[in-house]
Design a binder for these strands. Structure first.
Lengths: 335, 335
DNA sequence: TTGAAAGCGCTAACAG
DNA sequence: CTGTTAGCGCTTTCAA
């Protein structure tokens, strides 16, 4: 490794093509500014020598690195993983890369990542940001920042209407005759969970009922399994769950306990990930477009960088689908 | 956003501190080369102005970007996610960042990522590489490359002895009286799976038995669930599974089918992720140090970059633990 | 349409 | 221990 001798530079290409360095530069980055014949020569030379522009030199002068940073709380959550993967894919189409920084859902680490990466990237997408709005806006004065999964005043934000979807599922439960519903809450301190929970509780109150909240717990499979026993014992006839990973864990344990779905208990979750491909009867879920969030964020950043100015891309609340299936059934008699 | 006017440069700090630019540079990167008094002045000035060195300018001259790239097949696999997270954490301690590039387990995309990132990073860690050894070594001539989860001749490689661990679990099954064991195989084309499967089959043959192979399947929860029925119907009394995610999916479906563990079937998996925290009796597993792999790779890269020369860091096969529990039991009578 | 020249912001010799 | 002097490899005016 380490062969600083055989690296091909712009001059090498220029010499090979019999033109000047600036012509090579133009040919490669603004092909319409050179004569077709020259273009061909330069491309041929670059190709044959295996030239790849030094990104640092380019970044130094243009001020663009070709990187976007995506800050995510963790990678264990398949929702985040899906968002990150989609973001990378779309960025790649524009010749850009997405740097993923794991923050652990910790405001301090998030702030550190923001500060450290500021010089390395052209913009930030922050997934479920923990930082105060002011801190995010401060960064935004220098580099475009887009928020995902949380509305931040003054920033382009992309959210999904998961609370609304949960509400519709709740309505269906009431319609089926359920009166005792449990909600297994997600990550402590999570903005998303807060919204889902509050909406659900208020929504239930409007029906004259109430929802019993369990948790909050980390959105991990094992945590869902761990919560199953208490939920089953609580006497509820239906459970809504913060996300699909928790639901899988819960159902896993239900299976071992002999609790049947939906005969003994109806179940549904937000964030349909890995639920759709399950064998057997499908499970009721709010269909959140995890990948779409990542793509929207990248597209917005790209637009802001292109625009150069302070043009703020419009944010959106993405619609969610709701898949209502036989995992919802009337409450078992005698309850 | 975009305020190229108020960016603080080295000269600004120099002026503020009343010294030359090079002194500031030294003070910040090699503190032991300046007088304590100067150091204090410079640090004070840098702090008060909020100076952050331009990484592109630094990279241009030093040839170091402070980035390592980690190529992973996908982020849905919690094993990979754990490795990636640990790698980032260790790199952060050395003031470096890890760029995660998702390749989809596709050799072409892996090659593209290698080529595109070559100028942007100080080294590569490739998780479960798909590229031919020659291609990896070619990159290694210019930037250090470390292989994870596959031994690549001529490259520093970190692997885990998962096959050996599976063998020990298999021995225990034989000891318990099992004669009909199933193996649910992992990702098609995976080097890891190939090794696990072959070792297991040979190992079984030495006991005069044979292992029935199901799959291969993508290592996703739903795939494990989908495979459960066929496996249960095959008449085996024990199942070894490629990884823990698949096992969870399989057990999930077993639960719904009324198949009990371990009364009806004994189970075990490699790559213990998310298995340990499960409520109830623990599950037999090969304990693979996913995070440790990431840390080893980063440490090796750091060493190679420091060494500057062609000093090749030594690779290792990390030991695996084996947790043998009551998820293994004698085969049910009458089979 | 092309070339010459001037840096981008920083680090690394080299003197002093 | 510190300042001066050159660039790192590329893009981009400015003339020609």
């Amino acid at each position: 490794m380490a062969g600083p001798d055989d690296v091909v530079r712009l001059d090498d290409v220029a010499r090979e093509a019999g033109v000047s360095a600036s012509t090579v530069s133009r040919a490669l980055s603004r092909p319409d500014m050179v004569a077709p014949a020259t273009l061909a020569k330069v491309r041929g030379a670059a190709e044959s020598l295996g030239f790849r522009a030094n990104p640092a030199a380019r970044a130094l002068i243009t001020g663009r690195t070709g990187f976007f940073a995506l800050l995510v709380p963790d990678l264990d959550n398949p929702f985040y993983a899906a968002t990150a993967t989609a973001a990378q894919d779309l960025a790649a189409e524009g010749g850009r890369r997405v740097i993923i920084a794991v923050t652990g859902g910790d405001a301090a680490r998030e702030a550190a990542a923001l500060a450290e990466l500021e010089g390395q990237v052209d913009g930030f997408a922050v997934l479920s940001p923990m930082s105060p709005a002011a801190a995010l806006k401060e960064v935004h004065r220098r580099k475009p920042v887009v928020a995902i999964n949380r509305r931040v005043a003054g920033l382009t934000s992309f959210t999904v209407d998961t609370p609304g979807g949960l509400g519709r599922i709740y309505d269906r439960l009431v319609e089926l005759g359920h009166r005792d519903v449990a909600y297994l809450a997600g990550p402590p301190g999570s903005w998303m969970d807060r919204r889902r929970r509050d909406e659900l509780v208020e929504h239930a109150a409007r029906s004259g009922l109430r929802v019993r909240v369990h948790g909050p717990v980390r959105p991990a499979f094992a945590e869902g399994a761990a919560a199953a026993r208490a939920i089953a014992a609580s006497g509820c006839t239906a459970v809504l769950v913060y996300n699909s990973l928790l639901l899988l864990g819960m159902m896993f344990e239900f299976g071992r306990m002999g609790v049947r779905v939906p005969e003994d208990v109806s179940v549904a979750a937000a964030d349909d990930i890995a639920l759709a491909d399950l064998p057997g009867p499908p499970i009721t879920a709010v269909l959140a477009p995890a990948g779409e969030l990542g793509r929207c964020a990248v597209a917005a950043l790209a637009e802001m960088v292109q625009g150069g100015g302070d043009r703020r891309a419009p944010g959106r609340r993405l619609p969610t689908g709701v898949r209502i299936t036989d995992s919802l059934a009337p409450p078992r008699p005698g309850v």
